[in-house]
Write a protein that binds this DNA or RNA. Structure first.
Length: 272
DNA sequence: ATCGCCTCCTGCGCGC
DNA sequence: TGCGCGCAGGAGGCGA
């Protein structure tokens, strides 16, 4: 589902409605998503003020006075602002209701997402502390990217999708970044030149920034927090275009499988 | 340490 | 119309 631009768009969308508000009630309609929902801990935040709505990687972070909530949308999740108590549809698993009458609602058919609690420093949470740098910050730079690449025998496509290397590069943006950098997704990371890694670094930043600018990619499940779809899909060069003409050279776009995920690329533009 | 495979789950589009 | 199949935006965990 959502890749980083979608999560960022969601975060920005929900923020003005709930940041600074007081949590009135947690409504949890299931016991678990990917992991158990820590109901008692989440309920312990009722009455507290939501100090900040933020994002780390693909986690939406809601920071309260004595603890925080970490929300991940998995493959099929979305969050939106509804009126507290609004009609519930299938797969609306959790609502966080606020005293202004609004609620943050998580909808996630496949339930690969999660809604967790932590009362320690957010950066030290088990799932957060191992995450790589944010792609749009200077922490994600050529020195780092180059150093991480040396000695790696992995294919570059699966490597850039590892959130421990850099967060936020999902299947769509990995394919699109490699296309724009003219690098074959099967290329072995440790054998890529610094020049090519520099190009990839820049295309990743560019593609993610452009996607955020446009409100995320609109595929099946993604709906922004205001209910409007994103508009990036029309700009995709290779993702989901198997058999169609490459936008640059006209050759048929190829589809292969890497790490149990589909990879789309142009055999002509991305020869090596 | 590194890598690749498996897994969680529902929904949708396709071919028959 | 119905059924079975394959595939879908993530990523932790495991075994080799």
């Amino acid at each position: 589902m959502p890749e980083l631009p979608e999560v960022e768009t969601s975060t920005r969308g929900i923020k003005p409605h709930i940041q600074g508000q007081y949590l009135s009630r947690m409504v949890m309609r299931r016991d678990n998503l990917r992991w158990a929902i820590p109901k008692d801990e989440l309920k312990s935040l009722e009455g507290e003020r939501l100090l900040e709505v933020g994002r780390r990687g693909k986690y939406i972070v809601l920071r309260f006075t004595s603890g925080a909530m970490l929300i991940h949308l998995g493959m099929s999740g979305n969050v939106r602002i509804v009126n507290a108590g609004a009609d519930v549809s299938k797969h609306d698993h959790v609502d966080a209701e606020f005293t202004n009458g609004k609620a943050l609602r998580l909808h996630d058919p496949r339930r690969f997402g999660c809604w967790l609690y932590t009362n320690g420093p957010i950066d030290e949470h088990t799932l957060i502390k191992k995450l790589g740098p944010e792609p749009l910050t200077d922490d994600f730079n050529l020195d780092y990217f180059w150093a991480q690449s040396r000695g790696k025998k992995q294919a570059v496509k699966t490597w850039v999708m590892d959130s421990h290397l850099v967060v936020g590069v999902g299947n769509i943006y990995a394919c699109e970044s490699l296309f724009l950098a003219k690098i074959n997704p099967k290329a072995v990371v440790g054998r890529l030149s610094k020049k090519r890694l520099e190009r990839l670094l820049h295309t990743i930043k560019h593609v993610l920034a452009a996607a955020i600018e446009q409100g995320g990619t609109s595929l099946k499940d993604f709906v922004g927090s205001d209910g409007k779809p994103g508009y990036f899909k029309q700009e995709l060069n290779v993702y989901g275009r198997s058999g169609e003409a490459c936008t640059v050279c006209g050759q048929s776009v190829k589809q292969i499988t890497q790490g149990q995920r589909s990879t789309f690329y142009c055999g002509e533009c991305q020869k090596n």
